[in-house]
Design a protein around this nucleic acid. Structure first.
Lengths: 227, 227
DNA sequence: GGACTTGTCTACCAAGCGGTAGAGAGTCAT
DNA sequence: ATGACTCTCTACCGCTTGGTAGACAAGTCC
């Protein structure tokens, strides 16, 4: 996705102020949100441009004005979702230093994001299904965080706080646990019903936390000495 | 797979061979296998009847002869996948009595099935995404096993072999862990490459086994809170 | 006020979709 | 040999899809 700033600078602010009722950057954002929702719910191939457009009250050609192709729309969704997740994670991590605090903060913030934005996990799953080329747009926004996480885990392993293992693969395992349990929670909601889903989600979060803990604790037998 | 290789020339002879060899029940099975592969890879909406048909060397209308609608084809795939998984599980369970032996056998057979039939996990994931109505066809084939598993877990809890908990929810957790790690392994393969994927799959199996063990172990340090 | 930009629209199109109609070739029982 | 049955095909249809072309209104700039 292009940056928030359009080429001309001085004129743009005035124009934006005049048009901010509907048109411009705001509409772009609304379209992306709706597209993420539908891509997650119906899948990429199962979502027509018409469906996205009419869901926000415009014609298909208005959507095509902002995103020249369906693929461009998808890329914009990938970047937007990645950035939003990245922001949530950064917020959650700020001020936390202890190893386990940070791990738990990451998990909790993802679950909280999933609770206030239920379409997000389904979209991420669909993003993963669409192949590496598309997925990379999503992952790109998270890459700085990924690097920081790997370095952080490495240091924690050196300090003996967590079990020695491949940090990248550990991250992948955590990703699997969180996304997996979230997306299957969506299935659970479809089966059980919306009322019970919130409680189940919290329950799943606790399960994931327990799982991660068991993955991090150093040495099965020497675990008692960890803290 | 099967040597059916219909050449553009000699159409009549090819038809002759195809009739006696693959016609009828056999062709039906081949079509279902291919449909499962494509539904898993491209998604239900992303797979055209033409793609399935021409992938097995017949015209779309031949497919529609066996399955009158696309939905009927999907249902047949659901049932077939469910039954195949059910058979694999029954085989794995036969002759095993000890609690942990049975649990491990279930996990191992699912992973083995995923290894020799890589399209299967992706299809199951897509099946879950298509909503409860479609998913039920898949689950129906597994329902007897599910019942048996719940009864078995209940007895094991009574005997104090595993931690007391809701058996249905425990089963759901196991399902999540296995399917989640399998489908994300598909993503891993797409990213890392096919050569490393087999080793990673075995690694993931070990992780899942460890996870399940921690979920089953009664009391004590099941989810060690050592903060 | 005229050139230009931005945003939204109607009208349209070629391609692909799921599905129908029905013919033809081979097989089998009578 | 005939008629019923099985399997595969060609031909076609109506609908939806992603995408193009261009008119038009409102605002901005000089």
């Amino acid at each position: 996705m292009g940056g928030l700033a359009i080429a001309p600078s001085a004129r743009t602010t005035a124009r934006l102020a005049a048009m901010s009722r509907t048109g411009g950057e705001r509409r772009r954002k609304v379209l992306i949100d709706e597209a993420i929702r539908l891509f997650g719910k119906e899948g990429y191939n199962g979502t027509s441009l018409d469906a996205v457009a009419s869901a926000v009250g415009v014609r298909k050609q208005t959507l095509l004005y902002y995103f020249p192709t369906k693929d461009a729309l998808l890329e914009a969704c990938m970047s937007a979702a990645g950035e939003r997740l990245a922001h949530a994670l950064e917020d959650a991590l700020s001020g936390k230093d202890a190893t386990w605090d940070r791990a738990e903060a990451v998990i909790h913030s993802v679950f909280a994001l999933a609770q206030q934005w239920p379409e997000f996990p389904a979209f991420v799953r669909e993003a993963g299904r669409l192949g590496p080329d598309a997925f990379q747009r999503f992952a790109a926004a998270l890459d700085p965080l990924r690097r920081r996480a790997i370095a952080f885990l490495d240091r924690a392993m050196d300090a003996g706080e967590i079990r020695r293992q491949d940090p990248a693969l550990l991250l992948f395992t955590l990703y699997t646990a969180v996304v997996g349990s979230l997306t299957e929670a969506s299935v659970l909601r479809a089966v059980v019903g919306a009322d019970k889903s919130r409680a189940s989600l919290r329950r799943r979060e606790r399960e994931v936390v327990a799982f991660v803990r068991s993955a991090l604790v150093p040495g099965e037998d020497a675990s008692r000495a960890s803290r």
